[in-house]
C-alpha cells in the first residue's frame, strides 16, 4: 500500500477546490462515465448517488488505477473499462497509483 504524506494530501484537496468549477458528469442509466485520456480523468469531479456505478473508460495505452488512499482501488487497464459501485462513504479524492499526478474526486449526493 502506498501512503501519501500529509503535505501531498493537502495538495490533493487544493486541486479539488480548483477543479470544482469544472462541469460535472451526468449519470444516465445509473452509470457515471469518466474518460481517462492523456493522463487525465475527465470530468475530474463527479457527483453520484449511493448505488450508482462509476465507469472509467481508459483511452490511453497505459494502465491506470483509481485509488483512494487507505480505501478502494480500481485497476483500469490500457484501452479497457472498469467500474466502481458507489457507497455511502464515497465522498473521496482518488488518484492513479502509477501516475499520482492524475487526480479525481467523487461526491455522494442524495
Amino acid at each position: 500500500m502506498i501512503s501519501v504524506p500529509m503535505k501531498r494530501r493537502r495538495f490533493l484537496l487544493t486541486g479539488v477546490v480548483v477543479a470544482a468549477g469544472a462541469s460535472l458528469a451526468r449519470a444516465h442509466n445509473g452509470k457515471i462515465h469518466v474518460a481517462v485520456e492523456n493522463l487525465t480523468f475527465s470530468p475530474a469531479d463527479i457527483e453520484a448517488k449511493v448505488g450508482e456505478i462509476v465507469e472509467w473508460t481508459n483511452k490511453d495505452p497505459f494502465d491506470h488505477t483509481a485509488t483512494v488512499n487507505g480505501g478502494w482501488e480500481v485497476t483500469i487497464p490500457a484501452g479497457q473499462k472498469a467500474t466502481h459501485l458507489v457507497t455511502a462513504g464515497d465522498t473521496v479524492e482518488y488518484y492513479c497509483r502509477f501516475h499520482p499526478n492524475m487526480k479525481g474526486h467523487t461526491k455522494v449526493v442524495s
Binding site: 502509477f98 501516475h99 499520482p100
Partner: peptide, 10 residues
C-alpha cells in the same frame, strides 16, 4: 511530460 511527471511522483 505528463506521463514522466507521474512516474517521478510514483
Amino acid at each position: 511530460l505528463k506521463l514522466f511527471q507521474g512516474h517521478e511522483q510514483h
